[in-house]
Simulated assay, not measured.
Amino acid sequence: MSLRNKIQDAADLSLANTSELRRHLHQYPELSFAEYETQQFIADRLRQLGIAHQEIAGTGLIAEVAGGAGAGAVVALRADIDALPITEVNEAPYASKNPGVMHACGHDVHTASLLGVAEILQSVRQDFRGKVRFLFQPGEEKLPGGATLMIKDGALKNPVPAAIFGQHVHPPLAAGKVGFRPGVYMASTDELYLTIRGKGGHGAMPHNAVDPIVISAHIITAVQQLISRNTDPTLPAVITFGRIESDGGATNVIPNSVSLLGTLRTLDEDWRKELHVRLEKLVTGMAKSMGGEAELRIGHGYPFLKNDEQLTRWAFAEAQQFLGEDNVVELPIRMTGEDFAFYTHHLPACFYRLGVRNEARGITSSVHTDTFDVDEACLRTGPGLMAWLAVQKLNG
């Protein structure tokens, strides 16, 4: 029997186990950097599979499966394990039992899938060389990003992996399909915390006040010129303010200050740094010119995510061989962010998308929504493909 068929058969056999693991994880989600029960659950499953593990980065784990066909390189595979502060409204039997917490971004799928990969690779370990390293990473949804802690604690050392792969659920794609994007794929993600201070007063006598709301309105409009008139039109970049609130105010009361929360995203690290400088100058200068003050704090988030061109095109072709050409697509650039990006700046990396959609069953909700769910047929595709990519890379 060919290795491809062995892996596919193992994926088919492990589907029930992997689905059960996913449902358990979905019922008991935990927030970023507090994944204590999740960590224990993963550790227990690895022990059942006879795979030694090491706790790392607080609530993360790493483990390895050594191939029996001889020495070779190391290939790393990563899954994130944290959930989001969202209250689930789905009525599925596996709906979240932890109030206000939900696996609304598919990290339960990622974790269960990687455990499925571990089960598959244990069953075919005599057929590949080298080692496969599993990274179960905490805190993808919260700065500074669990990837930074995994890297700091040595997840990419002793030895340095030849490549790293990660996958992420993708509701626009039907279950059974996957998508790839060579090169720059996802944006950097910085958080903006802006405070505008003025002088409060009566709404009918604005000349006696310094209105921070008016200053904020001008700033919100003006910062868009950093994108439309200062950014190279061929370089994607976004500045969005998603929340604005004052420290008081009423129909006839001008408040003393206004707070704004936003995000800054781009696909170039040099321009990202330049935007930080220009944004600071713009908001402080404009506020001062109108009689107020501005204080900007930038929460430095994840860098842009760059898939290694050669590795990703290779993975695209391997996915076509494993799943069939009709089930593999090329994806457009996204301005969303992912802390897998940190890995991509250290070694050859490929971050791809796993289809989870099933329109006939009404499984169409986007990630980060309270109705998000997946067609669990993806748990046949995800583990099988990731196992195939790992062994093909090692045996190549």
Rank of each mutant, 00 (worst) to 15 (best):
L114K: 04
D82Y: 06
R129Q: 13
V101P: 10
A71Y: 00
G72C: 09
E91M: 08
A69F: 00
L114H: 02
D127N: 14
P85T: 10
L114W: 02
A118I: 08
E119N: 14
G67D: 04
L115C: 05
H103N: 14
P85S: 09
P93F: 04
I86D: 12
A79P: 06
A79D: 06
L77Y: 02
Q122R: 14
I120L: 06
A118E: 08
V117E: 05
C105S: 15
G106Q: 11
G130A: 13
A83T: 11
S113D: 12
I120V: 12
P85D: 13
G68T: 01
S96A: 12
E88N: 03
R78V: 08
S123D: 02
C105V: 15
A79V: 11
S113H: 01
V109H: 03
D127C: 05
L114V: 08
V101W: 01
R125W: 00
K131T: 13
I81V: 13
N98I: 14
N90K: 12
V117S: 07
V74N: 04
A66K: 13
A79Q: 09
H103G: 14
V132Q: 06
R78G: 07
L115S: 03
L77R: 03
I81S: 03
H110S: 12
D108E: 06
E88S: 04
S113M: 11
L84G: 09
Q126M: 05
N90P: 02
E88R: 02
E91D: 13
A104C: 10
D127W: 01
H103R: 13
T87N: 11
V89Q: 14
